[in-house]
Every structure is written in C-alpha cells, then in structure tokens.
Amino acid sequence: MSTAKPMLKADSVSKTFKVGSRFRAGGIQHLHALQDVSIEVYPGEIVGLVGESGCGKSTLGRCLLRLYDVNDGRITFKDRDITGLSQRELRPLRADMQMVFQDPYSSLNPRRRVGDLIAEPLRVHGKYSAGDIQTRLRELMDLVNLSPDFLTRFPHEFSGGQRQRIGIARAIALSPSLIVADEPVSALDVSVQAQIVNLFMDLQEKLGLTYVFIAHDLSVVRQIATRTAVMYLGGIVELGETDRVLHRPAHPYTAALISAVPEPDPHGNIKARTILRGEPPSPTNPPSGCRFHTRCPVAQDRCSAEIPRLRSLGDNRSVACHFPLDGSVAAHA
C-alpha cells in the first residue's frame, strides 16, 4: 500500500467554524471541528471514518471534497493541490469525486422524476447525448439493482433503501473514482442496511471505486473498510488496517468504543464492558493536551500537558497516544 501513490491526501488540515454572534453575550466562539488532521486515501481502498457525534468525521469528509474550505493545511487529489481552488475551478473535478449523504430524500428534489434526478449530473456535464443518457440511466439502474421502470416515478414513492440506491446511482453517474459516503446506512432499517452495505462493496469491486466511508457504527466499518481512522473531538486518534485497529486497538478511546458496541450475542451482558464515563467535551473549548485525557481510563499527567502526535506503531498503523495500549490487549475477549 505504501508504495502506491495516494489518490487523495489531507495534510495537517484544520477547520474552524465560527459560532455565536458578535452582538451577543459570549461573542464569537471558535468551534474546532478539525485540528491538524492528516490522512491518505489510496486508489481502490475503502477508508472508514468512525467516531461519535462531534468528532469531526463529517467535516473531514466534506473538507476532503472541498465542500468546505479549510482554514489550514493542504488537500491533494490525484497529485493536484485543490486546497485553494475556487468552486468554479473545482467543477470539472466534481465528476471525479462525489458524495453520498445519510438521508438521500432531503437531497432529492421531490417534484422531479427519478430519471431526471439521476440524469441531472449527466446533462450538466454535457458530454452525453440524449440517447447516451437513456442508455446510461438503464445501466446505472442495473448497477444499483433497481428496476428501470422506477425511472419515471417520484422520490416519495420509494422506501429508504431504494432512495439510497437512487442517491448512489446519482453519485456514480459520471463514473467518479472517489466517493465520500457520509453515514449512508445510518437511517436505514437493519435488514435494509445490510443490502446497502453489500451494494457499496459490489460497486467498489465492479467499478474499482475508492471510498471514504463515514459511519458511527463500528460493525459496519469493520465489514466494509480496508483501513479505519478513529476520530475523537476533531482529530484522528488511531489509523490503520481495520482488522488491526478493531481487534488490537492501541488507543484507549478505540478500545472503549469497541467495548461499548452492543453485540447481538445471546449471552451478552453489560457487566462485561468497560464503560467510558462522561461525554465528549465541547469542541468550542477542547481540553488541553490529549483531547481524550478527561475521559481516558489510563491518563497520566503528561496527557493533559502535551498533545500526542499521530505516530506509527510499525504495523501499518498509527496512534495519537502517549501511552498506547499493549497490542496484546484484545478489545473484548
């Protein structure tokens, strides 16, 4: 993996949102959504971004596609620095990098037919003739396992799973090489969620796609992602091959997160868990040093003083922790 060139690269990216108002008590506050985040995405891989709400995973996804401007750092896509490009300059690149959202319904215009919705990117792009578009539409419907008859229907006639298929068809219409999927299965019923996860995997194989797959559900990430980045309060705390990260977590937060996942184990029992106390602090006022130290079961003095850098542990994995867990500690055993 390390010999190949990364398709997408984020280098020390920071993103701050301004919240509050100059005219109000408290004034403007800075919400540090991302702080010094670096990640590389290689062609053909699926990188999972996991973490709890407010960890910055969605923000990172949007920054990677330059849907947001970044405050600091650099984003490179296919060897081209896209950090400073204007939205106009980005437009030709958009065909090559697409996004799939959690709730496709809100991103589908309810007054337009599914066929028009999926054809829209094709028309905008302008290199398809009317006949080509029809052929391509059928091809796309076939790829996402929907009947071509559905093309003339309206979004509200579909179930959540079918809408997500429509959203995916729209995203792959222009044959992108990169797709950022932001919680694409979170709003779906469990039985349907499995279908969509499978669809993502099928399409990746068939079309050679590269995904950044954002999810809060560790089990979904374990199923789909080749590499996983665990995020906490605006930073990546652990990054590496999914199996390694999830089975031998090096960061105490990763371990706690895995332990908190309720599994459908018939003999399951909450007492066997290590339960993290408290809740993530506010990203407007993150703790000093290691951002996790306020909840960390193994925190020491150094953790509140010094920010741990993401460093390699040698096994294709990096961790941002002064005292990484012994690799032999299995998450659950």
Binding site: G161, V190, S191, A194, S219
Partner: peptide, 25 residues
Amino acid sequence: LGLLHSIPPMHGEKPHRLPSIPGSP
C-alpha cells in the same frame, strides 16, 4: 434469523457479503 445475520459481526470471520433480507418492511 435474517435480522441477526444482517448485522455485521464484530468478531470472527467477516462474511464476503452480509446475508441480507431482500426488500424492505
């Protein structure tokens, strides 16, 4: 059975594809 199988496992072997229930409720 289908519901239980649809959940991606956290342990053991990963299925190549998740055994899903076709259609929706």
